[in-house]
């Protein structure tokens, strides 16, 4: 069931304590900042978050970690020059980390969306990140068994949605969006523009609307709330 929602606050309102939430983006490209801020405001806690990183600076995901709302982080690259909130929680033993090679992270998310129960890959074989995992010699290469990563909710950013929830992205901001949309039970998308059904060339749709549950438009020039304020003033 597809819903078009007026505000990011309403879009994330149903996210429960203890949920697993995938958050799209690589660096700032494709990060759904306004949805993350709304997740912060809605108060959900005890979250397991799936993202490539573990927050940067004093915004978005980093704030969720700082405020103690994240129980566990599943990511490939938590350590950055400005990941101080994650670093502090990790060193204090207040956050669990599942460190996943980036390609395994992507493929495990993809597997969840595709109904695959697990897969063997050479990535990580013989390393500490494969310790305790089943291995097999396949096609002459030692491979490691990896399981899918499912989520209750995905928060992603796309460029445009049409009336059917079909999505197109922009440049490298696409990154995790399409696979997270498929992997989560409930996918919430923030877009810069909602276009009429039929306005997207079906040949160019990247994420078919079947994977999308909620669409909220966020003015790319400013935050969602600022856009509403402007309308009220006008």
């Amino acid at each position: 069931m597809l819903n078009f929602i007026d505000t990011v606050g309403e879009a994330v309102a149903g996210i429960q304590d203890g949920s697993t939430v995938m958050i799209g983006g690589f660096g700032n490209a494709g990060q759904p900042f306004e949805l993350i801020d709304a997740l912060m405001d809605c108060g959900a806690k005890d979250l397991t978050l799936v993202n490539n990183n573990a927050g940067q600076g004093d915004q978005g995901l980093a704030l969720l970690i700082k405020e103690g709302r994240v129980r566990k982080m599943i990511c490939s690259f938590p350590r950055q020059s400005d990941s101080w909130h994650f670093d502090a929680k990790f060193r204090a033993g207040e956050i669990e980390l599942e460190l996943v090679p980036q390609g395994n992270l992507a493929e495990r998310i993809r597997a969840a969306g595709a109904g695959i129960g697990g897969f063997f890959t050479p990535t990580g074989y013989g390393t500490t990140l494969a310790e305790g995992k089943e291995t097999r010699l396949l096609d002459g290469k030692w491979q490691v068994f990896e399981t899918p990563i499912h989520a209750d909710v995905a928060l992603i950013k796309a460029l445009k949605a049409d009336g059917k929830g079909n999505l197109v992205y922009r440049k490298t901001a696409r990154n995790f969006g399409p696979i997270m949309a498929a992997a989560a039970k409930h996918t919430i998308v923030q877009v810069s523009e909602i276009v009429p059904t039929g306005a997207l060339d079906p040949e160019n749709v990247v994420t078919p609307g079947i994977y999308v549950n909620s669409v909220v438009r966020v003015d790319p020039a400013g935050s969602n709330s600022a856009a509403i304020d402007t309308e009220q003033v006008a």
Partner: peptide, 16 residues
């Protein structure tokens, strides 16, 4: 022991 581990795509690149 006190380093925060981060792997990114290194293992995929090395293997692929």
């Amino acid at each position: 022991p006190d380093a925060i581990p981060a792997v990114g795509g290194a293992m995929d690149l090395a293997t692929g």
